Computed example of a mutant assay.
Amino acid sequence: MSGPTVLPHPAREELSLTAVLAALSDPERLAIVCRLDEGALDMAECFSTSPDMPKSTRSHLMKVLREAGIVQNDPAPHGPGRRVSLRRDDLQARFPGLLPAVLENA
């Protein structure tokens, strides 16, 4: 039995300011980032305030955040899900002060 698929994430040096800002411009994605500011969550917990949102929409929102380099998706320690966390250190290294400024004004 194989493990969960490893999802691609951009390397720190590949993070683009325009991609990060575009991803954060959507209110739903920004709300997810605000929730993750409190700590890593299982994927399902990211959407507990929007339980009726279609799975395809949830997947797309997370894909945009991951591909922009804002979040890290890892296999959950228990079960088939994924654990999601902010790439705080990478964002701070590439764009100092950006994430705190966004979260403070969200």
Score class of each variant (00 low, 15 high):
residue 14 E to S: 10
residue 80 P to S: 07
residue 54 P to H: 02
residue 12 R to Y: 04
residue 75 P to H: 12
residue 20 V to I: 11
residue 14 E to L: 11
residue 80 P to M: 01
residue 53 M to Y: 10
residue 41 L to G: 02
residue 95 F to H: 03
residue 42 D to E: 09
residue 47 F to K: 03
residue 26 D to Y: 10
residue 81 G to W: 08
residue 35 R to P: 07
residue 19 A to W: 02
residue 73 N to R: 08
residue 28 E to K: 07
residue 65 L to A: 07
residue 77 P to I: 08
residue 106 A to E: 00
residue 100 P to G: 02
residue 100 P to E: 02
residue 8 P to N: 15
residue 52 D to Y: 13
residue 102 V to G: 09
residue 50 S to L: 08
residue 40 A to Y: 03
residue 26 D to C: 06
residue 34 C to Y: 13
residue 7 L to E: 05
residue 7 L to I: 08
residue 36 L to Q: 01
residue 67 E to I: 12
residue 65 L to W: 04
residue 15 L to M: 11
residue 7 L to Q: 08
residue 76 A to D: 07
residue 21 L to M: 15
residue 61 L to H: 11
residue 100 P to R: 10
residue 42 D to K: 07
residue 88 R to H: 03
residue 67 E to L: 05
residue 101 A to R: 12
residue 44 A to G: 12
residue 76 A to N: 13
residue 89 D to R: 02
residue 32 I to R: 03
residue 67 E to W: 08
residue 82 R to C: 01
residue 85 S to H: 02
residue 24 L to V: 00
residue 7 L to N: 05
residue 104 E to I: 08
residue 56 S to M: 10
residue 53 M to G: 04
residue 83 R to M: 10
residue 30 L to W: 15
residue 74 D to N: 14
residue 69 G to P: 01
residue 27 P to I: 10
residue 98 L to E: 08
residue 78 H to C: 06
residue 11 A to N: 03
residue 35 R to S: 03
residue 59 S to V: 14
residue 5 T to P: 11
residue 88 R to P: 00
residue 16 S to I: 10
residue 9 H to E: 14
residue 97 G to L: 11
residue 72 Q to V: 12
residue 61 L to K: 06
residue 82 R to G: 01
residue 47 F to V: 13
residue 85 S to I: 05
residue 6 V to K: 13
residue 105 N to Y: 09
residue 7 L to K: 04
residue 102 V to S: 03
residue 52 D to A: 06
residue 42 D to G: 05
residue 24 L to I: 00
residue 69 G to Y: 02
residue 23 A to P: 01
residue 92 Q to N: 07
residue 68 A to H: 00
residue 4 P to Y: 15
residue 69 G to S: 05
residue 76 A to W: 01
residue 71 V to K: 00
residue 105 N to V: 11
residue 83 R to Y: 02
residue 90 D to G: 09
residue 63 K to G: 13
residue 94 R to P: 06
residue 20 V to Q: 00
residue 59 S to A: 12
residue 50 S to V: 10
residue 52 D to Q: 15
residue 59 S to G: 08
residue 59 S to L: 13
residue 65 L to Y: 11
residue 42 D to I: 10
